[in-house]
Amino acid sequence: MSLDKATVQKIAYLARIEVKEEELEPLAKELSGILHWVEQLAEVNTDGVAPMTSVSAEMALPWREDKVTDGGYAEKVLLNGPETSNGFFLVPKVVE
């Protein structure tokens, strides 16, 4: 699959990464190169093969009681926030 500029623009928006107009073309070429290369997987017949979703699939995932075991330190959570106020993270205005 070769990616065009519009597709790169769309993926970049999905990933919330600003890409300048002049970077779109070279990026499309680079990403297409990688996609062409990974498409070699198509030559392998994988009919009836189950996808490996986890290395620990053979291990039963642990269960625990649904109760609060941690928390209660809002100030620590906010410590690294670029902008915070009164126990909240601040972001640019989203509602007029």
Partner: peptide
């Protein structure tokens, strides 16, 4: 960007699901 693309609607099976099957093999 590659990761976003291979997980995006319409391409998930062709790329991501395929790779997970290869991983099994």
């Amino acid at each position: 960007l590659i990761g976003t693309y291979v997980l995006s609607a319409g391409y998930y099976d062709a790329y991501y699901a395929k790779a997970q099957k290869l991983r099994t093999l």
